[in-house]
Structure formats: C-alpha cells, structure tokens
Design a protein around this nucleic acid. Structure first.
Lengths: 115, 115
DNA sequence: AAGATAGGTGACCATATGGTCACATGTCAA
DNA sequence: TTGACATGTGACCATATGGTCACCTATCTT
C-alpha cells in the first residue's frame, strides 16, 4: 500500500521511540543494563503488564535484547538500531543544518521565490 | 502523571516521526523545499485532508514551517528539532561503544566469516 | 461576476494503541 | 512440597490516531 515504506525496521524503531514510557525504559537500561521486569516495573507508575507490553515493543524493534536465567529475565540495551536509523535517516537532515537554516531565513525574510 | 516526561517538545517530535507518511513528506521537503499542499498531495496516495493533518502534526512538532502567499501555502523543512533530539537523546546511545557492539553483532550473526 | 483554484474546519468512522485484569506456568527456597 | 516469586497470555476497555467526506472561505483569472 505505502510504497515509500521501504524499511519496516525503521518503522518499528520510530514507533517504539514514539512513546515516552518506552523512552524512559531505555533511559533506565542506559543507566544500568540487565534489569529484570520486576525491577523496571518498580520504576514506573504502571502495572507489570503494561511494562511487559512496552518491553515487547522495544524488543521487536531490536532496541532491547533479553537473556533468561531461571525465573528471571534480564533486559539489555541494544543501541544498534538507533545507530542505524541515525546513520541512514537523521544524518541527512542534520548535516546540512546550517545551510538549510540560512536558506530558510532568506526565504522567510525576502519575498524571493525559489522558482 | 508521567513525571519522567520532561520535554514535551521531544515527545511531539518523536510522535511526528513515528508515521511513515510523515517521514515521506519530510523526505519530499528534504529533496525540495517550498512545496504547496497540492503539490505534496499529488505525491502521496491520500486525500488532501489526510496530508493536511500530517502537515499539521509536523508543524506542531516544529519540523515544518510554512509561509502563506496569496492562496498558496508553502512548506519548508526545519531540521532544528531533529538536530536537538539527536543531540540530547540519540547521541548518548550511539556514542558509547557502538562500534564495538556492531562488530560484535556482526561476529555473532556471521561467525562463518570469521575463522 | 463567475468559475476555477488553493486551502480550512468539523463531524465522522475504523483501527491502533496503552493499559488493566483474571488466570496460568515455571522456578526458587525452606 | 508448599508457598512465595518472576514471568506469561488472552480478553477486555478507553482513548488516540489515520483517514475520508460535506461544506466552507479566500484568492486568482478571464
């Protein structure tokens, strides 16, 4: 349907990052890796089930990887997807920042048309 | 409620980037600035109203700025919010040991390449 | 003035999303 | 082996989101 959606992985990563709770969970794991679900649950005002769903989304996006040991499941941060999205999507917007901004200011200030 | 949501602007930017159509619109504006709604509409398989809603979201997030001239409205890309999100959020995840991690990932995924 | 063009608004609908609960499985510790 | 602990599943609900439509205003052209 949407032919311009070429990278489903990108979409999963962007959608995973769209929720503030999930970004906060990533922040927690960034501060310290290898936390269990229970530990993460205690850091958020939300039931265990909500946290589970969020962790599932993060895991599907590849942003979090897990390791099971006994009855516990440890969660680790995986920055690779963010890095990849950054490299092939965000970089191009930030690299020409200065030039684009200067052009934009010129556009807004003068009534010069671009055509 | 969510005390860890300190930056509403971040949230708006992330949510704006979460939709593939909106990312495509940004790509269009990245390729060439100053397009009208009608021009953007013709590039997407969607009615004008859907495009309007998406542009509104992008504008609220600060990712797109507009200039009205007569009956036309021109849309310009503003990379500053992406730059800010990148600087204060993505950088910390990517700068750490990403290179080593990516190498490790490649080693794990294709150990036949190694020895 | 009349018609075409560009854009805007509010209602509306289907689906996606965030979150909870009852219940269930597997694991550790005494 | 009993009970507490850690995690998992499916149903369920309220709201957010993506998208369309009828209708509307403003501007340009002839």
């Amino acid at each position: 349907m949407v032919t311009y959606l070429r990278r489903m992985d990108d979409d999963r990563v962007f959608k995973a990052l769209a929720d503030p709770t999930r970004r906060f969970l990533l922040d927690l794991l960034f501060a310290r890796d290898g936390r269990t679900l229970s530990e993460l649950e205690s850091a958020v005002e939300m039931t265990r089930y909500g946290v589970m769903k969020h962790l599932r989304v993060l895991e599907d996006a590849g942003l979090v990887v897990t390791r099971r040991s006994g009855r516990e499941k440890f969660h680790f941060l995986n920055p690779v997807p963010i890095r990849e999205v950054h490299d092939r999507w965000i970089d191009k917007y930030t690299e020409r920042q200065v030039t684009a901004l200067m052009n934009l200011k010129k556009e807004l200030e003068s009534d010069h048309d671009q055509h």
